[in-house]
């Protein structure tokens, strides 16, 4: 059985709240006098004019059916709206927990601001040394040693086709895109070990040694 509702019942209307209206307060010094004969006459007049018919009663059978369809007070069936709110609240709470967990685990800041832990833990990238204008076999001893120790990768970029080695010009930058250092070596060494002594001044190895802080 459907519950009784008024066609223009306002959802926000609360029948259990105190009767609405302007909260008039008596002026200071107001003292209600006792009922006068005029008050009694007025009450009598009003009572007669608004007298309800005798025998006025509600439909007990209808009310009984409606009450029978109601759950006991305090043991209400969950309404569809209530179920929806419950589900929505549960989902929102679960989402909040997941988001909070992720934020806590990841720590503050955006990924772009975070240090790259993989880069920190990885082996330092070897220095890439491009030697231009020399034969690979004539790499200097220091470069060769660095390469063996993994500190440097020596490579010999190809020169543009048909371009002869220019003894006075640096190698084209396009041929050494990955090079950290481009060495123009005009004094190829023979690979003779220095025997613990610094490489000769002015040699490629001396320049490389100075650059690498060795």
């Amino acid at each position: 059985m459907n519950r009784t509702t008024h066609p223009f019942d306002d959802d926000a209307f609360d029948p259990l709240a105190p009767v609405s209206g302007a909260d008039e307060t008596p002026p200071a010094g107001f003292d209600a006098a006792t009922d006068s004969p005029a008050d009694d006459a007025l009450a009598d007049l009003l009572s007669r004019a608004t007298q309800p018919p005798t025998g006025l009663r509600i439909d007990h059978a209808r009310l009984g059916l409606m009450l029978a369809a109601e759950p006991l007070p305090g043991r209400r069936r969950p309404q569809p709206g209530r179920i929806f709110r419950l589900v929505a609240t549960s989902l929102a709470a679960a989402a909040a927990i997941v988001i909070t967990t992720v934020v806590v685990l990841r720590g503050p800041g955006t990924p772009a601001q975070k240090p790259d832990t993989a880069a920190l833990t990885a082996e330092p990238r070897p220095l890439r040394v491009a030697r231009v204008g020399v034969d690979p076999t004539t790499a200097g001893e220091l470069v060769a040693n660095s390469a063996r120790e993994g500190k440097a990768e020596v490579f010999y970029p190809r020169l543009p086709a048909g371009e002869a080695i220019n003894d006075n010009a640096p190698a084209p930058s396009t041929s050494t895109p990955d090079a950290s250092i481009v060495l123009i070596d005009y004094t190829p060494l023979t690979g003779t070990p220095y025997g613990g002594t610094p490489p000769p001044a002015g040699s490629t190895d001396a320049a490389l040694s100075s650059f690498m802080g060795q």
Binding site: T4, H6, P15, R57, I58, D59, L63, M66, L67, E70
Partner: peptide, 13 residues
Amino acid sequence: QEVVQDALLKAYR
């Protein structure tokens, strides 16, 4: 009658 019946129902709930 309608209002009182509704009031009783609301009171019960």
